[in-house]
């Protein structure tokens, strides 16, 4: 079977899982459904012969699942009841998205065939990557040699986002400490 058919099956499974994640009332079950979506993305990367991305996606999925379970388990949520306005909004959204899809069909004809991109840089990397960088893993040679600037940007993004998250979390934990001290006194 060609790869495209497998990927179509995985995509259908992912769509079903994401609808299930929205509709299931139990929090743990919907977290598991989100995990199925992430696993589907990882499998897609594996079928498209990108094991590097598949590994990273799979690991981050585990990481996100642990955080979600720790954050949302044991909490009670109240369901939003469907009102007339909600139904109208849903209909408007569906109509808008469908019309955008219909208008964008003609754009798909302009796209190059699957696996035949217009840019030819990839072929250069395949031909000369191992000789010029000495790395057997071509992905490594691209992200850390040919495109090392991008990786520096990624590192900067990670560094800045974690600084921001830490400063917010630190303020909140200090506020909590002060509150408990004032309660004890």
């Amino acid at each position: 079977m060609p790869v495209e058919i497998w990927i179509t099956y995985i995509l259908i499974l992912m769509i079903i899982a994401s609808i299930a994640a929205l509709e299931i009332e139990d929090v743990l079950s919907s977290i598991v459904a989100i995990g199925v979506v992430g696993l589907g993305v990882s499998l897609c990367f594996l079928f498209l012969q990108a094991p590097d991305l598949a590994i990273v996606q799979f690991l981050f999925e585990i990481f996100a699942l642990i955080i979600l379970v720790k954050a949302f388990l044991g909490k009670e949520y109240h369901k939003t009841e469907s009102t007339k306005l909600n139904i109208i909004l849903t209909i408007v959204t569906i109509i808008t998205l469908t019309s955008i899809l219909i208008f964008s069909v003609s754009v798909f004809d302009l796209l190059p065939d699957f696996g035949k991109p217009y840019m030819n840089t990839a072929q250069y990397y395949l031909d000369n990557g191992a000789r010029e960088t000495g790395a057997a893993n071509l992905v490594s040679s691209v992200i850390l040699d040919y495109r090392a600037y991008d990786t520096l940007g990624e590192i900067t993004v990670l560094f800045t986002s974690i600084l921001g998250a830490l400063s917010i979390l630190r303020i909140r934990s200090q506020m909590k400490k002060e509150n408990s001290e004032s309660q004890n006194a």
Binding site: A54, V56, L59, I62, A135, A136, N137, S140
Partner: peptide, 21 residues
């Protein structure tokens, strides 16, 4: 082994963080 086999700094770093977690 990031330059020899699939993986690399990001994947290995997440595995290390998961071990500590």
């Amino acid at each position: 082994h990031g330059h020899l086999s699939p993986g690399g700094g990001f994947a290995g770093g997440v595995i290390i963080a998961l071990a500590l977690l």
